[in-house]
Amino acid sequence: MTQTAAERPVNEPTPRRQRADIKARTLRTDRWWLNPALTFAALMSFLVYGFWAIFDQSYFADPYIAPFSAPCLATSCPEGARFLGLAPFGDWYTLPPGLLILGLPAGFRLTCYYYRKSYYRSFWLSPPACGVGEPHKKYSGETRFPLIMQNVHRYFFYGAILIGLILTYDAVLAFRDKDGNWGHVGLGAIILLVNAILIMAYTISCHSCRHITAGRLNHFSRHPLRYKMWTFVSKLNAKHQQLAWVSMFSVMIADLYVRLVAKGIIAFPFA
């Protein structure tokens, strides 16, 4: 049977097609604001702590070095704190040593796919929560400068791997006593080691890492080793959000701990 579409009489206006006229910004009844508010508070506390830590000079309590100041690359660093004994930045560099390297981990977290979600939601309210209207009139996302620069993430990932390895090296060196003998296990060494593991786990679980291992391939079967790596990274990647938070707090705790030991505030045996 042939179907014929019923034609609209010429003089009848086309029905207007519009969205439901609902003025409320959201009809959600749960506490949707709680999550972005907590995220905002947590990220702000990290920023404030980081700012203080950069300018705090007590970053070395032999054999511990505070993660926010590692690697120490300036001549102003105490002898034992220097990375591999090197001080490529000479006397002329008088600013805090942390400033030299913090750009890498900071850039890594700033362009991280998870942190992007969290600060777009909690700082920029774009959107604050799902189904809640955002306050901005225009939106162009990551299509143009400056947000198109988020695509640089993988380069920060390369840098973050380097920093992660250095933190691991520092954590291993922490298993020595004040005279440099191995086998000394202080609470600080354990804290630094746990922190290094969490930082590495967060770094490796990165979406860019997942892409580099094998995500960019269409034929896993032709690259069995890379496929194995991808499978491993994918498992970690599912926990990227949790690792981002845990490693953020662990690095703050580890950093604060070393500074408190350096200041003499924490002074019990096996500190």
Partner: peptide, 11 residues
């Protein structure tokens, strides 16, 4: 198709 508009807020 505007992939750049996505800001990965995961809704």
């Amino acid at each position: 198709h505007g992939l750049g508009y996505c800001n990965i807020t995961k809704c």
